[in-house]
C-alpha cells in the first residue's frame, strides 16, 4: 500500500488544480477501503454508494486545502467517516428505517462482499459479524472499523475521528467487549462451544 510518496504528492497537486484524471489515479488504491468504511458505517449498499460518492466529491473539492499535516489516506478516511456520520445523522432525523427493519425486509449483508472461495470465514460467520457491527453504537463502530478492519493505529484513528487517543482507546476496548457480547447473544458463532 505504501507506494511512492512523491508520485502521490504529484497526483495530489494535479488533482488539487482540478485534474479529475489525476484524482482518480490518486484515490483508486483507497477506493475499496473507503467503500468498506461507508458500507460498515451505513449498513447497506445504497447508502454506502451515496456516501462514497459524497465523500469522493468532498475529498476532490477540499484537496487544495490538504496541506500534508497527516497522511493522505488518514485524511481521506476522516472525510469519508465524517460524510457517513452526516448521513447517519440525516437518516436519524428522518426517523425512518432502523437496521432491524432492514434486516427484517430481507437485507443480506453477505451478498455485499466477496466470492465464497476467497473467504477465510464462512458465510454464516460473516452474516453474524456484519449484524453485530451494525448493532454497535456509532462511536464504537467507527473506532472498531478503523482499528480492526483497517488496521489503523490509535494515533491515525484519533486524527480520522478528530478525538484524542484516550477516547479512541476507550471506544475500542468498549467496542470489542460489546461486539463479543452481541455475538454471544446470537446463536451460531460461539454458542456451539458451550
Amino acid at each position: 500500500m505504501q507506494t511512492n510518496i512523491t508520485d502521490e504528492m504529484l497526483l495530489i497537486n494535479k488533482a488539487a488544480k482540478g485534474d479529475s484524471w489525476a484524482f482518480e489515479q490518486l484515490v483508486n488504491k483507497y477506493e475499496a477501503r473507503l467503500y468498506s468504511v461507508a458500507l460498515r458505517m451505513c449498513g447497506n449498499r445504497e447508502d454506502a454508494q451515496d456516501c462514497l460518492q459524497d465523500a469522493m466529491l468532498r475529498i476532490y473539492r477540499s484537496l487544495d486545502r490538504f496541506k500534508g499535516q497527516s497522511a493522505f489516506s488518514t485524511w481521506a478516511y476522516r472525510i469519508t467517516m465524517n460524510t457517513c456520520l452526516d448521513e447517519l445523522r440525516r437518516r436519524r432525523s428522518r426517523a425512518a428505517t432502523s437496521l432491524d427493519a432492514l434486516l427484517e425486509t430481507g437485507w443480506d449483508p453477505a451478498a455485499e462482499t466477496v466470492t465464497p472461495e476467497d473467504a477465510a470465514i464462512s458465510a454464516e460467520q460473516r452474516r453474524e459479524l456484519e449484524a453485530a457491527i451494525a448493532d454497535l453504537p456509532e462511536d464504537m463502530r467507527s473506532a472498531i472499523i478503523l482499528r480492526e478492519m483497517h488496521d489503523m493505529t490509535y494515533e491515525e484513528i484519533s486524527e480520522a475521528l478528530d478525538t484524542n487517543i484516550g477516547t479512541v482507546k476507550s471506544r475500542i476496548s468498549r467496542g470489542r467487549e460489546r461486539l463479543r457480547q452481541l455475538i454471544n447473544g446470537r446463536p451460531g458463532l460461539f454458542g456451539d462451544d458451550e
Binding site: 467503500y35 458500507l39 477465510a120 478492519m149
Partner: peptide, 8 residues
C-alpha cells in the same frame, strides 16, 4: 474482523 472486508 480483519478478514471481513480484506478482499472487498
Amino acid at each position: 474482523l480483519g478478514e471481513l472486508d480484506r478482499d472487498i
